[in-house]
């Protein structure tokens, strides 16, 4: 390295690459992290939990270590009827999402409301907690913030789960894991584009819709419809079940793979599912030999397809 010009060159290289990093890393991230979270952003992170991909609480990506979303219409403490509310239940040991652990990412005003009125600072992962989304005002505008219902209302995770019951409990966070693991996002984007798509796929996401969510799983290569608002377009559980089991049942031209393996070995009643026989019956139907396709088995309560379905139907 005896040449003087290499010293000059090396310094210029540092300036060039460093300058580029200031502009493309520091400035955008300062800008983006200053944005206040929207109600959508709060819902997403509270229902998905800490992380939607590989994590040490769920290394095999089975949907473990995730919160449950319970639709409540009576107070689990008193039993009195209340206005329907989504309660995000973190049982003891379930990691909290970023917005609880690092409240500053919630953005101007919402951080303060969540800490002061929502008391999220007192929530503990070891003891578990129940969160709800509350409304307050900041600078004269109505905003949403996170309320730690365990501190403010005395709701305990176990009580909320038993009050809601299994039919009102949704495994949205575990379903996001299934969405990422099964690679749904290689074809289905979660990003209606700003220049078009409004009419067909709904409103594009806004700047504050993502604070606390990871990964966003936008997808980049759309080979299938955008799903950001699919639950608002089609909320039929029956249609979704048929579509997941064999998409050609409801859409003959679909190129989506069959996700029948997500049903597991047994159906809702504990009877083994005979996939071979099902496929043979379906083939006969597809060739026009029979009038009706075979029925899709009802899935078991703890099957992966339930998780995925809960996630998909939560995309509103």
């Amino acid at each position: 390295m005896a040449f003087r010009e290499y010293k000059v060159g090396a310094r210029l290289f540092g300036v060039a690459l460093g300058g580029s990093m200031v502009i493309t890393l520091y400035m955008p991230i300062v800008d983006m992290t200053s944005v206040a979270v929207t109600e959508t952003g709060l819902k997403k992170q509270l229902s998905y939990g800490r992380i939607g991909g590989f994590s040490y609480e769920d290394p095999w990506m089975l949907g473990e270590g995730k919160p449950k979303t319970v639709v409540l219409n009576k107070d689990p403490k008193t039993g009195q009827p209340i206005e329907t509310v989504d309660a995000y239940v973190y049982e003891p040991g379930i990691p909290f999402p970023s917005g609880i652990v690092h409240p500053r990412i919630l953005g101007d005003g919402i951080t303060q409301l969540s800490l002061d009125k929502g008391q999220i600072g007192s929530a503990s992962e070891d003891a578990g907690a129940v969160f709800v989304i509350a409304r307050g005002t900041h600078n004269g505008e109505t905003v949403t913030y996170i309320e730690n219902a365990t501190a403010t209302r005395g709701w305990q995770p176990a009580e909320v789960l038993s009050t809601g019951g299994d039919e009102n409990t949704h495994y949205i966070g575990s379903g996001k894991i299934m969405f990422v693991k099964e690679g749904c996002w290689w074809c289905h984007t979660l990003l209606p584009e700003q220049t078009q798509d409004w009419q067909y796929f709904g409103i594009p996401p806004r700047l504050g819709d993502f604070n606390g969510e990871s990964p966003t799983a936008f997808g980049s290569d759309r080979k299938a419809p955008d799903l950001l608002h699919v639950g608002a377009r089609n909320s039929s559980k029956e249609w979704m079940m048929m579509h997941f089991f064999n998409p050609r049942l409801v859409q003959p031209h679909s190129i989506m793979p069959r996700y029948d393996y997500m049903w597991g070995d047994v159906d809702a009643n504990g009877n083994p599912i005979d996939f071979k026989a099902w496929r043979a019956e379906y083939d006969a139907y597809a060739k026009g030999k029979t009038m009706y396709p075979p029925d899709v088995p009802e899935y078991a309560k703890d099957s992966q397809i339930r998780y995925l379905m809960d996630f998909i139907l939560s995309l509103k």
């Binding site: 890393l25 993502f210 604070n211 990871s214 966003t216």
Partner: peptide, 29 residues
Amino acid sequence: FMVTIVFIVGNSPEWFNLTGLSEAYLTWW
């Protein structure tokens, strides 16, 4: 040199659990 820097910075959201748009942007960065 550049690929080492880019790899370490680009994967930092996962190590530091960065979220939201910053994470999405760093993914594409």
